[in-house]
Design a protein around this nucleic acid. Structure first.
Length: 434
RNA sequence: GUCCGGAUGGUGUAGUGGCCUAUCAUGAAAGCCUGUCGAGCUUUCGACCCGGGUUCGAAUCCCGGUCCGGGCGCCA
């Protein structure tokens, strides 16, 4: 049996006289002597429970006075219109049950009166997320996922799952987490890339997958994690422009959806969300180098990958979402299709937010012989990719796709400083618990 | 990985060799208070990351360790 029949956010002053049963956490208590306030919090808001020394049953009053902050309580009471109460109503309790007392002292302050460092918050994430502004991030993330899925279904994509436990490294193996798989060694997959391409050979035509990826790199920044959620798309008979279009509409659509459906959460975060305009600006790699050169900046050679400083410079200069296109083939993966007439440039692209890269994608190589050649040119052994290469020998359509970092999308959307704020239980170089 | 910075009550902080019996806020405990909404007031409680060193004297300086933050690198 559900222990509540209403959330705080469902109650209005017009419900005066109605009996409701709320359940949630004791956000705070204020004892003014003759009058006592308990603020109950659930995921939809707050409700003030008011008790009077003269009229409240002494046993009930003592129960409420003795309860510690953040204890879980069930409050049965009458809604009363009261101009002096927050929201214009309060609850006059008939019965209060302490379902689970909270120990004191608390490891952090969920009311936000005292600051708390990220590390401390992550150690007690289950308390941190009781803060409406922390909860809002994950409710918005859920809305983003719903919007993305809606967009994919509307565009005829099929949702898929590919294995996270794989036999071999996609490329080398230095950045994969090895795991024990019965009598063999296996790895946690760093990307569904090879599998979603095999699904193109399978004739699934248009697929997406939203799932975890694992990377064993020792990066240690505010925008990298060792476990992340990747939103992956692959579309047959499409080129890079087709999937860039799908991507920009997915991103802009997620912003619109959040703006329309998450006003409470945006308010909790204190953000006036601006929906990016589509289509996003296209900037070629070569144009980006030109934009970034001069003005006392160190010069970059054509073929160099863009370093963090250049990326940031471009972001500030452009000031909105943009696509970086026409990359040198040398710095994109082997499965990225080079232009046939000038193969030093390829059909790869990155979706950039002014602060960081959000997604990368490409039209893929679908010709078996070219793919083998590209693998070799990257200094890799085709033999290691046999399970994948074989799929290109029995009718592989042309295709294109991309992978988008979900947490980066949320982080940049909500202007969060650290990607860890956008992940419930982040996994980084040091953190494995909780 | 590397560079820079940091570690003080439960939480967040002040304190750069003696004025520290360590600041402030929050919290907790007790009390007063009938309209609070970061309530107010009184009293009380609670801390210098670990190990070594320098010094008459170390929260403070030095060395090592651990942990944390930020930058960069890495991120097919």
């Amino acid at each position: 049996m559900i222990l509540r029949n209403a959330y705080t956010g469902d109650i209005t002053p017009e419900m005066a006289g109605k009996e409701v049963t709320l359940a949630g956490w004791v956000h705070e208590t204020r004892d003014l002597g003759g009058i006592f306030f308990l603020v109950l919090r659930d995921r939809k808001g707050f409700a003030q429970v008011t008790l009077f020394r003269k009229t409240t049953d002494p046993v009930l009053l003592n129960t409420v006075k003795a309860v510690s902050r953040e204890s879980v309580v069930q409050v049965k009471g009458l809604v009363k219109t009261e101009a002096k109460a927050p929201g214009g109503y309060e609850i006059v309790p008939i019965d209060v049950k302490v379902l689970a007392p909270a120990e004191v002292p608390l490891p952090m302050d969920p009311t936000g009166k005292v600051d708390c460092e990220l590390d401390t918050r992550l150690d007690v994430r289950y308390i941190d997320i009781r803060r409406p502004c922390a909860l809002a991030v994950f409710e918005i993330e859920s809305a983003v996922l719903q919007s993305l899925r809606d967009h994919f279904y509307k565009n005829g994509l099929t949702e898929t799952f590919t294995p996270k436990i794989v036999a071999a490294a996609t490329e080398g193996g230095t950045d994969l987490f090895p795991i024990s798989y019965f009598e063999r060694e296996a790895f946690l997959n760093q990307s569904p890339q090879l599998y979603k391409q095999m699904l193109m050979a399978a004739g699934m035509d248009r697929v997406f997958e939203i799932g975890p990826i694992f990377r064993a790199e020792e990066h240690d920044t505010r925008r990298h994690l060792n476990e992340a959620i990747s939103v992956d798309v692959e579309v047959s008979f499409a080129d890079e422009n087709d999937v860039m279009s799908l991507l920009e509409w997915a991103v802009a659509g997620a912003y619109s959806y959040v703006k329309e459906n998450c006003s409470k959460q945006l308010k909790a975060i204190g953000l006036d969300l601006q929906v990016p305009k589509t289509p996003f600006r296209r900037v070629t790699y070569t144009e980006a180098l030109e934009l970034a050169s001069g003005a006392g900046r160190k010069s970059m050679n054509w073929g160099d990958d863009l370093d963090t400083e250049t990326e940031r410079f471009l972001g500030e200069k452009i000031g909105e979402h943009y696509f970086l296109t026409e990359w040198p083939s040398s710095i994109k993966p082997y499965y990225t299709l080079p232009y046939s007439d000038h193969p030093e440039v390829c059909r790869g692209f990155d979706l950039m937010h002014p602060r960081m890269e959000l997604a990368s994608g490409a039209q893929r190589v679908h010709d078996y012989n070219l793919l083998v050649e590209r693998i070799k040119s990257k200094g890799l052994q085709p033999a290691g990719f046999e399970f994948y290469l074989k799929a290109f020998r029995y009718g592989m359509p042309s295709h294109a796709g991309w992978g988008l970092g979900l947490s980066r999308l949320v982080m940049t959307m909500l202007n969060l400083d650290n990607i860890r704020d956008a992940v419930l239980f982040p996994r980084d170089r040091r953190r494995l618990v909780p």
